[in-house]
């Protein structure tokens, strides 16, 4: 009895010791800072001077700020249009790669490569491709007979679509997840459907898509969370311009927090973003019962 208790205590200590890096990290880098930023969001603070409690004033200012609504609109545009398009692209690539054709590993590699190169190097490449007068995209468009191709990153109207087009190249991870989902679908289901005389279209909508819904669901959840935090492309390629047309939410947080040292205001912005992401995530979780098929044969 005593021995068993000692053993259990030893196990508990061991477990916490092994998990301690993350548990400590959770308090230092997640829980603590979360509480601190919630507190800061009700304060005025610029690191150098003392902290001053100002109640809800940051939030009032935010909701009255045109830039906030502009950044929120841009970010929602990027999420609502970009995420489904990227999922569609990833799904098409996965479906193509799931057919019985030769050279599949090669095609899969080619589709994945652009996702390997990310960050600033990728951004610079696309700045060059989108360059209005000598860039490759417009050179080709003019060759195809488009006389006045868009200015892309230089145009208020085309800057967001340009960034979305660019993002369609980086869907390798989503493709791999869809591919794994496709390969999990039991082949017998298709064979049974064929015996019943089902065509390609019918099989696609009645078997492939329903059984792929868990992957679609996962990719959408992660895609939405990630897309709300878009930063590097916009910062490097357009610095939010032209005319704030690519001024995304995190750029606004960055400017307020690290350019102007408005730590309280930036914290309030961050908390609003957190709540928006939480809302969208819960919305998706809640809706999942209606469309995600969890039965597996």
């Amino acid at each position: 009895m005593n021995r068993e208790r000692r053993l259990r205590r030893k196990k508990a200590i061991e477990g916490y010791l092994f998990a301690s890096p993350w548990i400590l990290g959770f308090f230092i880098f997640t829980a603590g800072p979360m509480i601190a930023s919630l507190f800061l969001s009700f304060c005025r603070y610029d690191v150098l001077t003392t902290l001053e409690w100002i109640g809800l004033r940051n939030y009032k200012e935010i909701f009255n700020s045109d830039l906030f609504w502009k950044a929120l609109y841009n970010t929602l545009y990027w999420v609502v249009i970009g995420v489904p398009l990227r999922q569609l692209m990833a799904l098409i690539l996965a479906l193509l790669n799931n057919q019985q054709i030769r050279g599949k590993p090669l095609f899969r590699t080619i589709f994945y490569i652009p996702s390997v190169v990310s960050g600033v190097a990728l951004a610079m490449l696309w700045v060059w491709l989108f360059e209005p007068s000598v860039g490759l995209i417009n050179t080709l468009l003019r060759f195809l007979g488009v006389n006045n191709p868009p200015l892309w990153l230089g145009s208020e109207e085309w800057s967001k679509p340009a960034l979305i087009i660019m993002s369609l190249w980086g869907v390798g991870q989503g493709m791999v997840i869809y591919l794994a989902g496709l390969q999990d679908i039991p082949q017998q289901l298709y064979e049974a459907a064929e015996i019943d005389g089902a065509g390609i279209w019918h099989k696609f909508w009645k078997i492939t898509i329903p059984l792929l819904t868990p992957s679609i669901f996962f990719n959408f959840i992660m895609g939405v969370i990630g897309s709300f935090q878009v930063f590097t492309q916009a910062y490097v390629m357009t610095r939010g311009g032209p005319l704030y047309s690519t001024y995304f939410y995190v750029l606004y947080i960055y400017d307020e927090g690290f350019q102007y040292m408005h730590m309280g205001y930036a914290s309030a912005l961050a908390w609003i973003l957190f709540l928006i992401i939480l809302f969208f995530t819960l919305l998706q979780l809640k809706s999942s019962g209606r469309w995600v098929v969890y039965e597996r044969l």
Partner: peptide, 20 residues
Amino acid sequence: IMLSTMMLPAQVTMIPIFIL
């Protein structure tokens, strides 16, 4: 708790960590 932190945007903790 660990899994749910995956959904946490880094921006919520970024500023206090910077101050730290």
